[in-house]
């Protein structure tokens, strides 16, 4: 999917492979991409010149400790975008390419790895630091057990909006 408003900017295509995954909120992200014939040809040459039968976009969880998970879609345009839903709260990346065999995904472009925004606190130990007279912080102690605030912190639904 592209947008008519893109055309007015005269920069719809950079002529390079690019894929970006932008976090939107804990549930969703925005994915956009651009691939070129040259990029496809480069990927083909790396795989014995095998032409793509069906170009796919996919987003996937990259945290090995999580259960492997991915979602694929038919790539209908070389330049496009879509909103997606995170599969888990683990880091994700997106890729474009095709299957050369059942287990081999030939990649044309990929995004950086992106961590979905969190909607809950983590459970790391509590660490305390002190600031010396020169303004430098140093670690003082670590509490072994996470301590949960006894003070009320709002959820995002309760936060007043300023923008």
């Amino acid at each position: 999917m592209t947008d008519d408003r893109d055309d007015a900017l005269h920069w719809i295509q950079s002529g390079e492979e690019h894929m970006a995954l932008l976090p939107r909120n804990p549930e969703s992200a925005y994915l956009f991409w651009e691939i070129t014939e040259a990029g496809i040809a480069r990927a083909e040459s790396g795989h014995d010149g095998e032409a793509p039968a069906r170009l796919l976009g996919r987003w996937e969880v990259v945290d090995a400790s999580d259960s492997p998970s991915s979602h694929e879609f038919d790539l209908e345009t070389r330049v496009g975008s879509r909103f997606i839903e995170w599969l888990t709260s683990a880091p994700h990346r997106a890729r474009i390419g095709w299957y050369a065999s059942r287990d081999t995904f030939v990649e044309i472009a990929r995004s950086t790895v992106v961590v979905p925004p969190s909607d809950r606190p983590g459970a790391e130990p509590v660490r305390w630091i002190e600031r010396d007279e020169s303004g430098v912080y140093r670690l003082e102690s670590v509490d072994d057990d996470p301590r949960f605030s006894s003070l009320d912190l709002p959820s995002t639904d309760e936060s007043p909006s300023s923008s």
Partner: peptide, 13 residues
């Protein structure tokens, strides 16, 4: 919630 959803909850909110 930048603090509330940190890697560890701030003890003093």
């Amino acid at each position: 919630h930048g603090l509330a959803h940190a890697d560890t909850p701030p003890v003093f909110g």
